[in-house]
Amino acid sequence: MKRNNTSKYVSFGLIIAAYAIMMILSSTGKITRSMQGMLVPICAYIVMAISLNLTVGILGELSLGHAGFMSMGAFTGTCAAIIMTESVTNTGLRLGLSMVIGAIFGGIAGFLIGIPVLRLKGDYLAIVTLAFGEIIKSIFNNLYLGFDKYGLHLQLLSEKGIKLEESGRMLIQGAMGISKIKKISTFTAGFILIILTLFIVYHLVESRYGRAIMAIRDNRIAAESVGVDVTKYKMTAFVISAAMAGAAGALFAQNYSTITANKFDFNTSILILVLVVLGGLGNITGSIISATLLTILPEALRGFATYRMLVYAIVLIVVMLFTNASGTKIMIDKIKAKFGGNKEEEGL
């Protein structure tokens, strides 16, 4: 169990230090507007990256539809917050509750999609998660939800059938999504969510659940041979991961005045996957760093304006080639052998 501790402290340390620095900078007014606007999205992406890392890095299953869970949390959490506007006046508490609701719905979605996911392997599993993301997007794009004193009114495809009381309002308007959202997400809330996420992931990894999940990743057949119930543990990891994504979605959505389903499309899923892979599979600290850098990078490249996305693509390819090409791999192995080469001969 000692193995994780360094990385754990580094992760917590980084987050706390970054939070403290940002708070000091913003209180002294030294922070640019664009940076200020990016703080909440960065927090949301960090949570998304950690959450997806649980699925891809720790459970070892590829997911191409993680934005679907984020979308689920964003829509349900935001709707809940709007409904609670009058009953819960404290914005912090309201945001917290909306994230919990987002997490619950994310988890439910995770459970539902987990049923087919558990029966499939490799690329077939990946395509099902992709399909799931597209289905969620398609449904939210055509969902109309209204709210008045009689409760919720839900309809697919058009809002014609929804007749609301005078005091009621439309929550979700199909492809227009949710508009007039109160921007209650704050950097502090994001910080707390990240800390919570880290607690959950590290505690999971260091418990018998996490061990079993990683054992399945490393060698499914061996895990079965020592009595590990593969279905149960895969589902546990999947649901937790989806719930975290749901909470991140609720946080993310309430940083904007409008949110649409198209914000959480396939490209978003891929972006999160890129964060995880660049940060290193199973490496939580790596996910935090890559989520931060890659969210800032397009902004930092704003000077290049037209070329920035091209540069982003090139950076991505070059990094992957450099870290994974067999040529550089051999080089790295040689360096490792030079410094730790005696391992083989060590008697035990």
């Binding site: 891929i270 693509a313 090139i314 991505l316 390819i317 992957m320 067999s326």
Partner: peptide, 21 residues
């Protein structure tokens, strides 16, 4: 081609990079 021996996820991400490019 340089990634022939690399894990499939690395190749996938590279392909995504090429797509963006």
């Amino acid at each position: 081609k340089p990634l022939r021996q690399a894990p499939s996820l690395a190749v996938l991400i590279t392909a995504i990079g090429v797509s963006y490019f």
